[in-house]
Design a protein around this nucleic acid. Structure first.
Lengths: 204, 204
DNA sequence: GGAGTCATGTAACAAGTTACATGATTCG
DNA sequence: CGAATCATGTAACTTGTTACATGACTCC
């Protein structure tokens, strides 16, 4: 579940679409970030769903020989989709290379750790912006979408808040040479690449 | 990245272990929930890493013919691991069947939606407890682990808070017929599968 | 002696990605 | 006319899971 089949059925709830449309919606639509799939999986999935009668395929030869297949949900398809959603849902998985790397923050150079956190902050700020943009769009306006937007905002904000607190609590720039800086520098470590980065040692 | 190879290298940072040990640690250790892998991928990965010289394999025939292979990180393995962590990290993916389902909350029966939210709340409360337990354990005590625990707690709490607010804001049981029931369960619902569940209509 | 755990490995399968191959239409 | 976009599909490959096959050791 949340396999490509379900993704396709979901995309066809409410409107008909081509495989291309579905892919586009996954990239830019109201569920971006939540799900994804490639053409290589979408087209075979649509073909099979049509075989099974969960969707219908209507060929539309725009002019001469364009060849475009518009898919639409059948009553059985809709029922199947909703029934599956009501069934037992698989556990959610949060694969985060960032958090994985942070586990070894103590073994990585400090600047690198700081850069990673900054990058993560930027990425999440961007996600927040995306949600705000989606909220404003005419489509993606439903009770469910609203719930999901709110959820995303709540957790992203909490995560950002945490990252910012931790980030600013890390000792500021460690200047290698005798640099005169007017900031809150602590020490100048010439240690190159395997300098441990104490992300702990927080006033927290 | 965050493929099984990296997982194995990560598991061998700090101590040596067998394939079995690694699997156990993924299930119960300080990174549970963050990552996972099966025996079917761990053993081949270890064999290949040993071939490449990133880890060493030492056979330990406990007594007679037990056969047990203890792996340990080499200097190159350690360097490779840390270098990879410093390189560009892939985007994080948050595959959440729950949120996916919530997108269609408006098309699902209300009780079902409420049940899903309750289930999610329970699951997340459990995760919070797990983190607290890990915090208390002797292993999994490092600057990085502390950072990750804190992050998990911050986002889980925010998510839980959001879910609780929304959950309590949903109108309470909508009884279809004149059913006099003092519990929350109703088998044989007159409106079968497509009763819309307005998760919106919030005072929020 | 049987249950449970320790321990390793392989083969079949599942699901999806990347890259390729193809071609029409539209817009500047 | 060339670039971008629309549009479909397939074949090879990657990655990992499930299920199976095997066997020792430990504790009751």
């Amino acid at each position: 579940m949340i396999d490509v089949r379900m993704l396709c059925l979901a995309a066809l709830m409410g409107r008909e679409a081509t495989g291309y449309d579905i892919k586009k919606e996954l990239e830019q639509g109201s569920r971006t970030g939540l799900v994804d799939a490639s053409f290589g999986s979408i087209y075979p999935a649509l073909a099979r769903l049509a075989e099974e009668g969960l969707i219908t395929a209507r060929s539309e030869g725009g002019r001469g020989r364009s060849g475009k297949t518009v898919y639409a949900l059948t009553a059985e398809g809709r029922a199947h989709f909703l029934k599956t959603l009501c069934g037992p849902l698989p556990e959610e998985k949060h694969r985060s290379p960032f958090l994985f790397a942070m586990l070894f923050a103590g073994e990585l150079p400090r600047e690198r750790v700081r850069a990673m956190i900054d990058q993560q902050i930027a990425a999440w700020e961007h996600k927040l912006d995306s949600i705000a943009a989606m909220r404003a769009e005419p489509d993606g306006q439903s009770a469910g979408a609203d719930f999901v937007y709110g959820f995303g905002e709540a957790t992203l904000k909490a995560g950002l808040d945490y990252l910012r607190r931790r980030r600013s609590a890390i000792e500021t720039d460690t200047r290698p040479a005798g640099v005169t800086a007017n900031d809150t520098r602590r020490e100048r470590t010439p240690a190159p690449d395997n300098e441990p980065a104490a992300i702990a040692a927080m006033p927290d």
